[in-house]
Amino acid sequence: MPGGRLECGHARAYLEDSMNYHWNWNVFFQPTGIGKEIYLDWFVTGFGWTVAVALVAWVIALAIGSVLGVMRTLPDSKATSFASAYVALFRNVPLLVQLFVWYFLVPDWLPESAQTWFKQDLSPTTSAYISVVVCLALFTAARVCEQVRTGIQALPKGQSHAALAMGFSRVQIYRHVLLPQAFRIIIPPLTTEFLAIFKNSSVASLIGLMELLAQTKQTAEFTANIFEAFTLATVIYFVLNMSLMKLMGRVEDRLRVPGLMGGK
């Protein structure tokens, strides 16, 4: 791969010289010298990876986090302590440390055949992608778990009593009575987690997955148009987050219950 880390001294020179900085927004349409690509293509590819990492990790996080959140509200103390231990572990270790564990350590613990597959058969990009998705999914699941637990516990105890009294099973009570209400309550904090997973996906650049941040750095190194590159990246992240917030706002409106807080 061409290009290394942008030298610190190099970058500072640009900054000190910024009075005379030569802005060039056309840089994104210049050829990269690799095939017929222009620099904008790198951003498009990077954006694609960012979305692919965040969305897949989010779906997994939502599923695992919901199961864990339910476990934390069960009368069975074994389920509760398992979920609590999970949350403690994944919330208290920094995300970057978790990523390095998943990428550098965990593959070595796999059985021989799985190791060869992960380290040799898969392309470096694919193995980095898998590591990042697993890392972000499990990290975010701990946070989703806490939101789901809070949502369930916020409901009046009489709700599950009423459902029990009509003959619902435990599973039915969660499925038809508790979770539909809990999820409505926690849409705002879940939105925060959803946005966070897109922002956190930038850690992937540290293990060589060419998502948006990595492509930005590479463009900056290749062209020396460091400000243009990071300005474009900022705009993309910003527009992405605003759109996601809008989307979640729509979801919230769709699920709003008439006669309840904020409902008509």
């Binding site: 009046p156 009489g158 709700q159 009593h161 009423a162 459902a163 038809h176 009575v177 539909p180 209400q181 409505r184 219950v257 006669g259 309840l260």
Partner: peptide, 8 residues
């Protein structure tokens, strides 16, 4: 006492 209809 508190009805406990399912609000959703």
């Amino acid at each position: 006492q508190h009805f406990e209809l399912f609000p959703h």
